[in-house]
Design a protein around this nucleic acid. Structure first.
Length: 685
DNA sequence: CCGCGGAGTGTTTTT
DNA sequence: CACTCCGCGG
């Protein structure tokens, strides 16, 4: 059977890819340049193993996002359906599954609750209060920052002091306090049966230190593949190492030039040190690029030339024609940039390039807001990836907290959120009632206690009565999740309207969410997926679809565009201070990361690349003049390209717009005049 | 003890 | 320009 297939493999792969596919035993490091077909390698390697009588369940595929794993496994399954039993997912989801199984062995109950970032910040805050941090007149970092510092120290395996020295020198004086806080927070989570994202990795690592567990897991997972290895952190590196220590059948795939998650504790040290940890490892490089035209790769190579790294080399295109010249366009302000991009996207669509083959990428979410407005105006359907996630918005968290209570009646953070929502209950009262709740044995006892003690004589009594009948209503074995969600929604409606002006928009989200929830068999599964693999991001702000159900345009942060590709990519907002982002200017390593980010953006494009920026920006109500990103400007890309005689189309679109359109329409002109007469100088332009 | 209004601040990327 | 923190009135 194997011998029959080999020619197929050879035909579908180039020699390096083929080598990566058939080198299954022993450690392998695959350095896969952008667009070099690493997805294909993983797809075929899974297939190759399965065809070689390796049981699919003993193959573990760890990837950066859940969807990446799903994609590769489903591709392999098209060749051979057995492949769909391969185990895959993110480090975090893998850790979660193992911890569910072994929770008891490390002193957690298997009904532990997962904290998302918001919850974790809240928990850290509670710990700081407990330690008396906010009593004195000191300016402590705010709770999200505290959480970020602790998280960074854990993911990097360093002390809090180290993190402060590098990233927060102005908080260095709190070093000892934060070290105490880190302990307190860890103890708090153990006491409350909580795990945050980092804990999933921390505790899996601790489990793997025990020979018994390590043996069991390495007997089960005989072949391990790790994708995007350049974006793993120290803990993940340790986990990969411990899992494969015995059998040493591990393949790590990555590209050091695309390491862009340093801010999350990832370190390209892992990929650099792989050959040291696995001395006998084979190193395979995939250098041929199947994605982009040479003209686009010339830009990418110019960026690459400025970077200091060991592995990566020049990208060479496998595509025959040189391709259109990449463009660099200047605009007056963000509005004109957005207008032009929206217009061009529409034109291209009319000329036959589907929206699904186009994407607009940016460094930060806010850059896309004017564009979103322009697209809506033109009725172009789009989907926003990355950035503020809808499951972290207040209204979604509000609703979910009610469900969390039912799933885990000891969830102090959820109770607090639910209670404070009720009119007349503030932090103190919530804390008080919460104490009683945690002291009781069961949810029904809770309801009785809450009912009897507090539902008369207070301002909040009515609200509390409503809450307890809601919980009674949804706390039934086997009650469909969709209906539970519906009941919570009914209960929440008045609160929603009261709290938010844009409640109808938010209600839309919640309705969508209810449909998602209805697909789950149990509340536990819903909550688990919600934290560990939040719903596909497209749910958020999708424009009403056109009658013929056109696939939407993609708007994405560069971070979220990792691993993806489009025929035409607009890389917008290329101003200095935006990319590279202003905060990184003083840190050499962060600047390197910004540059890699630019590289990732450029290499997403297959045939057309449009880079753009605008000159005028607003900051604190004052117009500022932006400069072109230093990554594009003369010492870097521009002069490198022209030295090689590779021109880029550089155009100043600024003037063209200055000539044309009227500055005010009649209505807004009148309004402006009235404003001036009333001396309401609302800033105007 | 709760909630509202005013002033001040600071603005990335995400499993 | 949106969100948070703080101080005051109920």
């Amino acid at each position: 059977m194997l011998s029959e297939r080999v020619p197929d493999f050879k035909k579908s792969l180039n020699p390096s890819q083929f080598a990566a596919v058939i080198t299954t035993d022993g450690p392998v490091l695959v350095i896969a340049g952008a667009g070099s077909g690493k997805t294909r390698v993983i797809e075929y390697r899974v297939l190759y193993l399965v065809e070689n009588k390796v049981s699919p369940g003993s193959i573990l595929l760890l990837t950066f996002t859940r969807s990446a794993a799903r994609e590769m496994i489903s591709r392999a399954s098209r060749h051979d359906p057995r492949c769909k039993d391969v185990e895959g997912g993110t480090f975090h989801s893998f850790a979660y599954r193992q911890l569910k199984r072994y929770a008891k062995r490390i002193g957690f109950s298997e009904s532990f609750s997962l904290l998302d970032e918001g919850d974790a910040g809240e928990a850290v805050h509670r710990c700081s209060v407990k330690l008396g941090f906010f009593e004195k007149e000191r300016r402590l970092p705010k709770k999200e920052t505290l959480r970020a510092i602790i998280s960074m120290s854990i993911n990097k395996g360093t002390s809090v002091g180290e993190v402060l020295k590098k990233d927060y020198p102005h908080f260095l004086e709190f070093s000892a306090d934060l070290e105490r806080l880190r302990r307190e927070y860890a103890a708090y989570k153990i006491a409350k049966n909580y795990l945050d994202y980092d804990d999933l990795l921390v505790y899996l690592r601790l489990l793997l230190e025990k020979e018994e567990i390590r043996d069991r897991l390495s007997r089960k997972y005989k072949y391990i593949m790790v994708d995007e290895y350049q974006d793993t952190n120290r803990l993940q590196g340790d986990i990969a190492y411990l899992l494969s220590e015995d059998r040493r059948n591990i393949m790590a795939v990555g590209d050091d030039a695309q390491s862009i998650y340093g801010f999350r504790g990832a370190s390209h040290e892992n990929i650099m040190e792989f050959p040291k940890r696995f001395a006998e490892c084979a190193i395979i490089k995939l250098e041929e690029n199947y994605r982009s035209t040479q003209a686009i790769l010339d830009v990418a190579n110019a960026v690459l030339e400025n970077m200091k790294n060991k592995y990566s080399k020049c990208l060479v295109s496998a595509r025959k024609q040189a391709g259109e010249k990449p463009e660099l366009l200047f605009f007056k302000d963000s509005h004109e940039e957005a207008e032009w991009i929206a217009h061009t996207i529409k034109t291209q669509r009319d000329e036959g390039v589907p929206l699904a083959h186009q994407a607009v990428l940016f460094r930060s979410q806010y850059l896309s807001i004017p564009l979103q407005a322009e697209l809506s105006r033109r009725n172009i359907p789009f989907e926003v990836f990355g950035g503020l996630k809808f499951y972290e918005t207040a209204h979604v968290k509000d609703v979910m907290s009610h469900l969390k209570i039912v799933a885990n009646p000891k969830d102090e953070l959820a109770w607090n959120r639910v209670l404070t929502m009720i009119d007349g209950i503030g932090p103190r009262t919530a804390e008080h009632i919460c104490g009683e709740i945690l002291a009781s044995a069961s949810l029904s006892e809770v309801l009785d206690a809450v009912l009897r003690k507090h539902t008369s004589g207070h301002r909040y009594s009515g609200g509390l009565t409503r809450l307890s009948s809601l919980i009674k209503g949804i706390h039934k074995e086997g009650f469909p999740v969709g209906e539970q969600f519906g009941l919570v929604l009914d209960y929440y409606m008045p609160l929603l309207k009261d709290r938010f002006d844009d409640w109808h928009l938010r209600l839309n989200d919640l309705e969508t969410l209810r449909q998602v929830a209805a697909r789950y068999a149990s509340l536990e599964e819903l909550l688990e997926d919600f934290t560990i693999e939040p719903p596909e991001r497209g749910v958020w702000r999708v424009e009403p679809s056109t009658p013929y159900e056109e696939k939407p345009l993609t708007l994405s942060t560069i971070h979220s565009a990792k691993g993806l590709e489009w025929e035409c990519v607009f890389l917008m907002g290329l101003m200095d201070g935006v990319l590279p982002v202003a905060f990184s200017l003083d840190h050499e390593d962060e600047m390197e990361e910004e540059q890699r980010l630019f590289y990732v953006g450029v290499t997403r494009a297959k045939t057309r690349l449009v880079m753009s920026l605008h000159h005028e920006g607003f900051r604190g109500g004052i117009t500022q003049f932006n400069k072109m990103s230093r990554f594009v400007d003369v010492p870097n890309v521009l002069s490198k390209l022209s030295a090689k005689g590779i021109p880029m189309r550089v155009e100043d679109r600024h003037k063209e717009f200055e000539r044309g359109a009227p500055l005010y329409d009649k209505d807004s002109l009148l309004q402006r005049v009235i404003d001036l007469m009333e001396k309401k100088d609302g800033g105007g332009e």
